[in-house]
């Protein structure tokens, strides 16, 4: 699996394999993430202890973390978006973290998944802005004070800039996850290749092994950070939608 013969196969880990027709391993891990999040929140909060246990602490910390984020970034009006941001954050976080388990599939490493998530955010942000500000929303694309003659130039640029959020939001998460997992796989393959080349190779294999150990730690950081970045950017976009200009 790691190294067939002398070839390196770092991308097969992203292949979709159908488990049942129309239900791939990606879907399976999405389901696992959903069940795990629900279990964390439902079972974790079951004791309702004043001094929380470990699971309850985890549930409370994640809740308060996102609650603080939403409050700081969007403001008081933002509290109604908390369930959305929390769900989004937990789904991405669990997707990234489940991907760190051996043999697991990382569903956030597919652009189709991240793009859909970004599109959901984009549609929601646009809908919120339209619902709150109505047609005034379109003044977003033309900054006040700019000369009218420049309108045909500024408006397309602003629209492209607005639409590019979807692309940058989805590509950021997708690229980080793919790059991390490819690196892990490449260095793991080095270990196997060198390890199979006699005693000297076995000693030499220690270097990529050490790098891989460091990379695993780094990937856990990235897994958390990317979920956080996604949530923060969602909050910033929602802030822009609520407070237009």
């Amino acid at each position: 699996m790691a190294a067939e013969g002398k070839t390196m196969d770092a991308l097969s880990q992203f292949e979709l394999t159908p488990i049942v027709a129309g239900f791939s391993n990606s879907n399976l891990y999405m389901l696992i993430a959903g069940v795990a999040i629900s279990a964390l929140m439902l079972i974790g909060m079951q004791p309702r202890a004043r001094v929380p246990g470990r699971l309850q602490s985890l549930a409370e910390v994640s809740y308060e973390f996102i609650y603080g984020l939403v409050r700081d970034q969007i403001g008081h009006e933002g509290k109604k978006f908390f369930p959305f941001v929390f769900t989004l954050f937990m789904f991405i976080l669990f997707g990234n973290m489940l991907g760190m388990l051996p043999y697991a599939f990382t569903f956030t490493s597919h652009i189709a998944v991240t793009f859909t998530l970004a599109l959901v955010v984009f549609v929601l942000v646009t809908a919120v802005a339209l619902a709150i500000h109505g047609l005034h929303f379109f003044s977003y694309f033309f900054p006040e004070g700019a000369p009218k003659a420049l309108a045909p130039l500024i408006i397309p640029i602003e629209i492209i800039s607005y639409l590019s959020r979807v692309v940058s939001l989805s590509v950021r998460l997708f690229a980080n996850m793919v790059a991390g997992h490819v690196m892990l796989k490449v260095f793991a393959t080095f270990v196997v290749m060198m390890g199979s080349a006699g005693v000297l190779g076995l000693l030499g294999a220690l270097a990529p092994l050490a790098i891989n150990v460091a990379l695993v730690g780094f990937e856990f950081l990235v897994a958390f950070l990317q979920a956080y970045v996604f949530a923060v950017l969602t909050c910033i976009y929602l802030h822009d939608a609520v407070h237009l200009h």
């Binding site: 700081d72 970034q73 492209i160 800039s161 639409l163 590019s164 959020r165 692309v167 940058s168 590509v171 950021r172 690229a175």
Partner: peptide, 26 residues
């Protein structure tokens, strides 16, 4: 809160590059 957590220069560079690339793609 908006100003805190300033990213590293490397991260900022990657972000800026991504912003340009995605706008170009669109």
């Amino acid at each position: 809160a908006a100003g805190k957590g300033t990213p590293s220069p490397w991260g900022l560079g990657v972000r800026a590059g991504l912003e340009v690339a995605s706008a170009l793609a669109v």
